[in-house]
Design a protein around this nucleic acid. Structure first.
Lengths: 348, 348
DNA sequence: CTGAAAGCGCTTACAG
DNA sequence: CTGAAAGCGCTTACAG
């Protein structure tokens, strides 16, 4: 593979001059520039990004450690992150933690070893020593979706509180009184917050949330199945199951189906995180939608701000409730609402 | 950030010795080794992978350019690729082409600039000059899922021919005679092959596949919707629509639903690529399942073989038909088969 | 077993 | 406007 030296020889100039034209440095004569460009073309030369990074101490690369690529929410987040990063002249390397702290740590380490310019993370747990140390050491960093309290790092996330309140109002209106939740890991902020928001909303209606109606999941499908089975085995099973993410909702559907039960007749279902398939499931699933693309883009902007010396700000965007049929027919009587996916915005 | 020099000073040895203990070189005295290790620990030293790569001319990194991250098939492929790569001591950088040749090219270029050790690609088109040039230049490379004919690169893919034949047999048995397909881009091998396999299977039953029942899609949802609308507008709409990937099947469902029609009563649906949600759609969707994880792992092994000087072999694995209810009830009379997702293996 | 030195491919003050 | 030279952080023959 041709190096800058080869180009210099071919163009009859020094490597310094080649470097200058490649980097758009102004003080190069038109003649030299032309000869360098011709040589680059002739040799099919491409600068070695590794060497450049070593020298400049910047990789123009962002690391993104997500909790689970197989979760469509994170896939979409990753996509928007890459898009915005590309627009700003950065590449992104994705590390998939699969909800495993050890894997998360592996990726953080690998990414740091590669000297990425900044790190975007959606922590799987309370934060490994390596991650906290990186934050303290001043590695530009931004948390997205999930975050770690007490660490001085901007957080870009969505607030589901209003949407959860709307959901509970919707459920109450449909006559449901015995509500249950499949929670995410308590080690994650979203794992805790969604339960808290749910509990608070229930309290507004004087509804209890006893321990046996809080199932401990891990944001993955299998845990949703397991928890739902437990709910169904209860002496008094819940009227509704609210899954704290879409994968656990999938597991819940598996469990309900395996028992030959029906949604919403036998048990209603709602999920945090909306995905396109929810329109076509049997029945269509009522869900809380995050502005995923906006979150990804905002996170990148905040991170790049930090990298380039500006102050990256935290951002919180509202989620919204999307009512479908999985919790029962709307009391208004519109069995099939006119729009395929009626949207109710969360109240401010 | 501490460098190898800092460690050397701290340990009272030369950088060469530090490097040796870090790389497990045998000829280091126990005493020196201990002092180096202590210094590494004390300083929290981590070797700079960029510098190491420049020196050794290897990055221990694989590039993976996939056609579309939002497609669950590719997401799963990416996951298995990363898993196997990690097991073999490599990292992987994913580039998402979004089915756009220009974006694919951007990622290939970026990846090559970073001097990845090898490239795994599922080409979006017939191959850009840059990619073909890289292949010719000897960059270790493997095609996965889709490939480019005439390029001397191993191909790891799945053969859906048998499963498509099984699908057509299934459809015929159910009484369907007017079949249609939503094809992928003709510039991709899978785009062409799936149509060919479908056409051949139809021919075995003496069924025609007229042009107006071959809709041109691009493997993304919107095209599935558009093509399906066209089918439904035909004077004689098809009995069945076979979508060449799961996203176009999603679009087809959108279109059918928007017209207030029902699957399979009004029109049947089948898809290439099975995904977990298909179990819960209304109705559950009959699909052709690829051994995605196996493909990803085989592709990585082939690529690493090439990188490390062994001969990476092409691999072809069979796909299989998974019968559900979207094409009509099984004539055997079992409306709800005992197993939640009955599997029929493709004939050898 | 150990260290001094070269060199990987770049960029960038410094002189001219 | 241009080039010689230093240096980024490593690894690895080469001597000893």
């Amino acid at each position: 593979m041709a190096s800058i030296k080869d180009v210099a020889v071919e163009a009859g100039v020094s490597v310094a001059t080649v470097s200058r034209v490649l980097n758009g440095h102004p003080s190069v004569s038109p003649g030299a520039r032309a000869r360098v460009l011709a040589a680059v073309e002739a040799l099919g030369y491409r600068p070695n990004a590794v060497a450049r990074s070593l020298r400049t101490d910047q990789t123009r690369t962002l690391g993104l450690v997500i909790s689970d690529v197989m979760n469509p929410y994170f896939t979409e987040l990753a996509r928007s992150v890459e898009e915005e990063a590309r627009a700003l002249g950065y590449s992104v390397i994705i590390g998939n933690a699969d909800e495993r702290p050890d894997l998360q740590d592996h990726h953080v380490t690998t990414l740091l070893d590669r000297r990425i310019d900044g790190l975007l993370v959606s922590p799987t747990d309370g934060g490994s020593p390596r991650m906290l140390e990186a934050a303290r050491a001043g590695t530009p960093m931004v948390f997205v979706d999930r975050w770690i309290p007490g660490v001085d790092v901007p957080v870009v996330r969505s607030d589901g509180r209003g949407a959860v309140r709307d959901l509970v109002a919707h459920l109450y209106r449909l006559g449901h009184r015995r509500l249950a939740i499949i929670a995410g890991p308590a080690a994650t902020t979203t794992g805790r917050e969604r339960v808290d928001a749910f509990r608070e909303a229930l309290a507004e209606y004087g509804l209890p949330l006893p321990d046996d109606r809080i199932g401990q999941g891990d944001f993955q499908a299998e845990s949703g199945r397991r928890v739902t089975e437990g709910f169904l085995d209860l002496p008094e099973p819940p009227d509704v199951v609210f899954a704290a993410d879409n994968l656990m909702a999938l597991g819940a559907l598996d469990a309900v189906r395996a028992r030959g039960l029906r949604v919403p007749e036998d048990i209603a279902l709602a999920a945090f995180d909306d995905i396109r398939w929810f329109v076509h499931t049997d029945p269509p699933v009522t869900a809380i939608a995050q502005p995923t693309g906006d979150l990804g883009r905002a996170a990148v902007r905040a991170l790049v701000d930090r990298i380039e010396g500006r102050t990256g700000e935290s951002v919180t965007l509202p989620a919204r409730l999307v009512v479908r049929r999985s919790c029962g027919e709307s009391p208004s009587g519109t069995a099939h609402p006119p729009s395929p996916s009626p949207v109710r915005r969360s109240t401010p």
